[in-house]
Amino acid sequence: MTRIADRFAELKAQGRSAFVSFVMAGDPDFETSLELVRGLPGAGVDVIELGMPFTDPMADGPAIQMAGQRALAAGMTLSRVLDLVAAFRKEDDRTPIVLMGYYNPIYAMGVPRFLERARAAGVDGLIVVDLPPEEDDELCLPARAAGLDFIRLATPTTDDARLPKVLSNASGFVYYVSITGITGAAAADAARVAPEVARIKARTDLPVCVGFGIKTPESAREIAAAADGAVVGSAIVERLGRGEPPARILEFVRSLADAAHGA
């Protein structure tokens, strides 16, 4: 069992949905980011998605674009992201960490070297936005062979004919993108999400978490009730952009987590 599988099994036993939070590694700087990430499990976060900053985040809205730019400006690199994970793992060996980002920094490091370092640092899974199943031999299959989960995105444009392909090499959980659009854009609609989650769950035993467009505790509660988990990113990252200290951001995260868990 991986940390991700363990965590979802635990939640299932408790009858709770997962709360997944996204923060950009190194935003606004390494130390502040590490402090924030260390506080996430205590604030009720079940799975941590850690952004790997990239200059050209094509699927992200302004909040996460700016977060990446802040991190890069402060000297963040993929190598430092892995350092941050390793530092976190010294104190927490249970909370799953999923790296989320784009392929080029990984390709630049070299896939074998990246996978070896990610494993050693304590990374559990990967979400790479610009690697659809058509490109599985690039990273998905090597990552699975190295024991890392490869979390696949399913979207409103993924129809029934295509869904099996999307699910074929998926592991960990399935990330359902609630809207057609970029991160932090339109509001997710639980009434439209529920049948989509059911459609996916009919074809896989993996948990289905839903993200994109969840900004408030109310929305987190509704979405979490309709799925196995809710993911929030932009709404958290925006607060970092406004200069809020980690302690206050963690209060907000707790309100989201409580709402999602209450569902």
Partner: peptide, 12 residues
């Protein structure tokens, strides 16, 4: 070359 795009765009 290849098709390095997000899943939303892949069907398109």
């Amino acid at each position: 070359g290849g098709r390095f795009v997000s899943e939303t765009l892949m069907p398109l």
